[in-house]
Design a protein around this nucleic acid. Sequence first.
DNA 1: ACGCCTGATTTCAAATTTGAACAACCCATC
DNA 2: GATGGGTTGTTCAAATTTGAAATCAGGCGT
Lengths: 163, 163
Amino acid sequence: MAEQVEWLSEDEMKAWLAFFAAAALVDRKLDQQLKDEAGLTHVQYEVLSRLSDAPDRELRMTELADTLFTTQSGTTYQISQLEKAGYVRRRECRGGPRGVWAVLTDAGYDVLKQAAPGHVRAVRNLLIDVLTPDERAAVASGLGRVRDRILAAQGPCAGSSSG
Amino acid sequence: MAEQVEWLSEDEMKAWLAFFAAAALVDRKLDQQLKDEAGLTHVQYEVLSRLSDAPDRELRMTELADTLFTTQSGTTYQISQLEKAGYVRRRECRGGPRGVWAVLTDAGYDVLKQAAPGHVRAVRNLLIDVLTPDERAAVASGLGRVRDRILAAQGPCAGSSSG
DNA sequence: ACGCCTGATTTCAAATTTGAACAACCCATC
DNA sequence: GATGGGTTGTTCAAATTTGAAATCAGGCGT
């Protein structure tokens, strides 16, 4: 076993460590900022944000889970929380294509609109404005490819077994 | 209020979304891979890894928490788990400089050594080898700066009030 | 119409994370 | 030699996340 692994070079290690640390720290900071200023967790903000971007401000549970890169049961939990808070409503569609839609309420939209400026400012301060234009472009293309490859590797598999 | 926020341009948004998604997906994938192949969570792997890199393979709880970018109570919990598994041992140093050291055991070192190749391979497949050399350099420098700025903003505050 | 299969969603228990409160210990000072 | 402050680590309850099992609706073959 242990068929000869190519360990990371010093430069590669630097990239990996920077990526890993930045991911953890930025997420933590955004969470803090949102809790302090808007009373939302980062996850909840993302839920509201995806919904507000979706057509008719609604998304099936599974779609939502996919765009959040999280599990379905986690999504169920968060939607339940947001429903209690009145920011989201569940709509069951018995007639047409099966499924449950999470719908952003007006209250949810208002909270999002109120939280957005601070959030965007934080994203700028923590990440975007810290990068040079070149670095930003490299992050967009490189990490975009990283994301797409992972999604491509699991997307086709999750749902259908053959073609 | 809402004093004019500068929203993200399309390119900036691309960078932010790529970063956010890649961070979530890579972490999730590494977790899966480690659980499947080594029976460790990513967090646990990181703990063992930091310890094995430290002088004498031991670290104070607070140092450990810092390098893991997590809370102290979270670190206490994980060390307790790893102690149960026999991968880590606690050493209290009553005489000298106060504190508790988490020490990597031989068993812990073995598990780490066994898990490392698969983990490094995964880091390569998911991230490092997907980036071009330029992108990798940009990630290292740019996200390194992101990390350092966040740490600098909170490091000095957390621990001492003046200088 | 019946029974099985698939897909979507929820439920449930277990594991983990978090933040606040607590306890232990050092040092400096009185 | 006792006291207060600051640091370090743990404990506790609450919130969240996870994965597996249960639920429920619809389609299909018989």
